[in-house]
Amino acid sequence: MGRQLRIVHRTGYRYHGLISASHNEARMTPRATREQYVLATRLEITPVAWSHSFIDYWGTPVTAFEIAEPHGRLDVVATSTVDVGDRLSVGSGISWDDLRDPRLCDQQVEYLGITEHVDPGGELRRIAQDAAKKANRPVDAVQTIIRRILDRVEYVPGSTEVSTRATAVWEARAGVCQDLVHLGLGALRSVGIPTRYVSGYVMPNADPVVGQPTTGESHAWLQFWDGAWVGLDPTNNTAPGDTHVEVGVGRDYFDVTPLKGVYSGSQSSDLFVEVEMTVLA
């Protein structure tokens, strides 16, 4: 079963005082994949900005833009219409030996590397190692490890910041979707399973009414390698389905930050985010 979704993603900054210029990059429009057909995207920026769009190293559509006039507020609105098909929820069940193939390891080296933000820390590493030893196939280890993370860390909105590291989340026992994903990435990579961060949107309601706009979320989940990339949403402990929309993938959050940039003339700013999703068909 597939669905057609419309996503309106509003975000931006309120600066404390006027800023004289800013340079930004927005990763707010869905990427095209086999299961996800992008019908239309539009990005509106206020104040008027010069912009340049391209596909980055990780395959994510990016719009780089600059504003040269003094402004106190930046608004970015991305509107996309996407056909979402059934996503792969089960891989081919490859063996540990398949994972150790040097060619695969070299190819996936970036999704095996443990960056500072996803480093799971000693305790979770030991848990992961233990799970891997007991599991016949990598996919079995994945299930165990993710369950252990969810046993320990509770999903608490607003409990962390974007720069919070995985170890700190493990200690605090609370985090948001991004933190659960970071922990998962670090733990799975520590046992040699290539894993990547997915940034996107999700409908909070699994059974939405057609034509009725609902408040969605900017969301994150992960994909692990099981002969193909298989999705896993640790926040909801499900496989992402036709209510998930992918924007981009990367090693961690910082490869797919929805809106980032620099500005000159003020010391601080507040970020705001709002996502509205509608099932069209």
């Binding site: 004289s20 210029a21 980032k260 940039g261 500005y263 003020s266 700013s269």
Partner: peptide, 8 residues
């Protein structure tokens, strides 16, 4: 020179 805030 301009000074920039924000960034990575």
């Amino acid at each position: 020179a301009a000074t920039w805030s924000g960034g990575n």
